[in-house]
Amino acid sequence: MSAIVYIGAALGEIAGCFAFWAWLRLDKSPLWLVPGIASLCLFAYLLTLVDAEHAGRTYAAYGGVYILSALIWLWIAEGVRPDRWDLTGVTICLVGAATILWGPRAA
């Protein structure tokens, strides 16, 4: 369940941030901010659904999923294919995220 929530949160964050990017950098209408803000609120809400005892671990583990999502965005939305260094980096980040989220903890 955590993976699905993280993917949804990443989509919400990227879409929300892109709405601001479009407004400020691509000269789109300020109306882009309305769905952008809603998307960022959805992102924040979804992170609260992750089954973790501490918010900091939830956010830290989410970082790896965000990096993967950003590279997918780079490829699909911007037409730039990630290179081997991007793929190596995201693999390292996902291993780190999994370790943070699911590593054994002392009771």
Rank of each mutant, 00 (worst) to 15 (best):
P30F: 11
G96V: 02
A15S: 15
A77F: 13
W102T: 01
I67M: 15
T99H: 09
R81T: 13
L74F: 12
L68I: 14
V65N: 07
A77I: 13
I4E: 04
E53G: 11
W32D: 11
T99A: 14
G96N: 03
G12Q: 03
T91D: 03
W73P: 03
I14W: 01
M1Q: 14
C93K: 04
S69G: 15
I100G: 01
R81E: 01
C41I: 12
W73K: 08
L42E: 02
V80Q: 13
I100N: 05
P82H: 00
A44Y: 05
G64P: 04
G16Q: 02
V95N: 00
H54C: 09
V5T: 07
T99Q: 08
K28H: 12
G96K: 04
W102L: 07
T91W: 09
A97F: 02
I72V: 13
A97W: 06
V34L: 14
Y6W: 03
L71R: 13
W32F: 14
I4P: 08
Y6K: 05
V95Q: 07
C41N: 09
W32K: 07
L11M: 01
A107C: 05
T91C: 11
A61Y: 01
I4Q: 08
A52W: 06
L40R: 03
E78K: 11
A98K: 07
V65H: 03
G79H: 08
W32C: 14
G103F: 08
L42A: 11
W102A: 06
E53Y: 09
A107K: 11
T99V: 09
W85Q: 10
P104S: 00
A60K: 02
P35L: 10
L31P: 06
Y62D: 06
F18A: 13
V90N: 11
L42V: 02
A44Q: 05
A77M: 13
L31V: 11
C41H: 10
E78P: 00
L101G: 00
A52P: 07
I92G: 10
W85D: 05
C41G: 12
H54L: 12
A106L: 12
R105C: 01
L33H: 01
